[in-house]
């Protein structure tokens, strides 16, 4: 049986590191070319579902979800709210622009959702958030450009979709 090139890298990235694969990476290309193979490979070997979108991919499992996901949602939620409040073009800002950690920190500090952040141990203060940013970077949700600037990778769309779905299902409930 022949495995695709980069097979080990693909498995390592998705399974071991639990990170997002992004368009432009060699592993993503391999995944794209052997999509059927990898879909069944991950289901049969590890019981996980490969989620493949136009510009990002990751593994999803119903059994074990990382608590990190909640931290990301809270962070994204507060950040989106603050960006919008400051009059930024939300989608444009997240998809195409760079952000500064200083600026983000400032926004989070004065946010009306501070209580929520303080109740989340990984986001409660600047020091723990620095750690959190590193984890975001490790999962390829953000890309650090230098010490102070970063930008979101296409993986952030996964969380925006999540928010959209909440809004839609709430709306349906109301109707």
């Amino acid at each position: 049986m022949q495995y695709p090139d980069n097979h080990q890298e693909v498995v390592n990235a998705l399974l071991v590191d639990g990170r997002f694969l992004l368009e432009g990476e060699a592993e993503f290309m391999t995944l794209k070319q052997h999509l059927d193979f990898y879909e069944s490979f991950f289901v049969h070997s590890f019981g996980t579902n490969l989620q493949f979108f136009g510009d990002y991919a990751f593994l999803q499992s119903d059994r074990d979800t990382d608590p990190f996901s909640r931290d990301v949602c809270i962070f994204m939620g507060v950040l989106c709210y603050e960006l919008d409040r400051e009059g930024y073009n939300l989608i444009e800002q997240l998809s195409f622009h760079t952000l500064e950690f200083d600026q983000v920190e400032q926004m989070l500090e004065i946010s009306s959702f501070r209580e929520v952040m303080e109740a989340t141990s990984n986001l409660q203060d600047t020091a723990s958030r620095r750690n959190f940013y590193n984890r975001l970077q490790r999962r390829h949700i953000i890309e650090k450009l230098d010490d102070n600037t970063f930008r979101f990778t296409p993986a952030h769309k996964y969380f925006l979709e999540f928010a959209k779905n909440i809004a839609r299902s709430r709306k349906e409930e109301e109707e």
């Binding site: 925006l160 928010a163 959209k164």
Partner: peptide, 15 residues
Amino acid sequence: ESEILTGWLYFLERP
């Protein structure tokens, strides 16, 4: 955008 923000606001009610 409004949808995303509404979604996050619902989420942040009981984060």
